[in-house]
C-alpha cells in the first residue's frame, strides 16, 4: 500500500472543533470519490473520536488534538486521532457499548459507533500519556457502483 496523500490537522480540545474536524476530513478524502453513505460513515466516526478527546483527554485543562488523515493508492483511508491527555485505564472496558464515565447525557456509544462505521478500529492508550485512535476504511466509491 503506497501513500497517495496525507494531511495533519492540529487544534485545541474545544468542542467547537468537532464540526470543523469532521468537515475537514470529509473534504480531504473526497479525492477517493466516496459515496454519500461512505462520507457520512467517515464523518460520524471522526466526530466520535474527536469528541472523545475533547470530553475525556484533558479534564482540567485545554490540550491539543491531532488528526492525521492518510489516503493510500488502494483507496484505503486511515484516520488517526491522537491526544496527549490522561489516557484510558482500561481500553477494553471503554470500548464496551453504553459504558461512560462522563454522565451529562453522554450515551457511551462512541467506540461502538466508530466500530460500526469503519472497517477496522484500533485504540492505543497509556495512562498519563494519551490516546491514539486509528480508524481504517476502504472507499469503494461511486466508480464501483
Amino acid at each position: 500500500m503506497k501513500k497517495r496523500n496525507e494531511v495533519k490537522i492540529v487544534f485545541p480540545s474545544r468542542s467547537v472543533n468537532e464540526g470543523f474536524s469532521r468537515a475537514a476530513v470529509a473534504a480531504f478524502v473526497a479525492v477517493c470519490d466516496p459515496t454519500v453513505e461512505e462520507l457520512s460513515d467517515i464523518k460520524t466516526a471522526v466526530s466520535e473520536a474527536v469528541t472523545n478527546a475533547v470530553v475525556h483527554a484533558y479534564p482540567d485543562r485545554e490540550g491539543s488534538v491531532t488528526v492525521t488523515v492518510t489516503v493510500y493508492d488502494t483507496n484505503v483511508v486511515k484516520i488517526r486521532v491522537r491526544d496527549k491527555g490522561v489516557g484510558i485505564e482500561d481500553v477494553q472496558k471503554a470500548r464496551e457499548a453504553l459504558f461512560t464515565t462522563a454522565g451529562d447525557d453522554r450515551s457511551g456509544l462512541g467506540f461502538t459507533v466508530m466500530e460500526s462505521f469503519s472497517d477496522k478500529l484500533q485504540v492505543r492508550s497509556k495512562p498519563g500519556k494519551g490516546t491514539a485512535v486509528t480508524i481504517t476504511k476502504r472507499i469503494t466509491g461511486k466508480r464501483a457502483g
Binding site: S40, K43, T44, S47, E48, T51, D105, R106, S107, L109, G110, T112, V113
Partner: peptide, 13 residues
C-alpha cells in the same frame, strides 16, 4: 443533517 452518538445522548436524557 448530521448526528453522532450525541443525538442518542440527547434522546436518552
Amino acid at each position: 443533517s448530521f448526528m453522532d452518538s450525541s443525538g442518542v445522548g440527547f434522546v436518552m436524557g
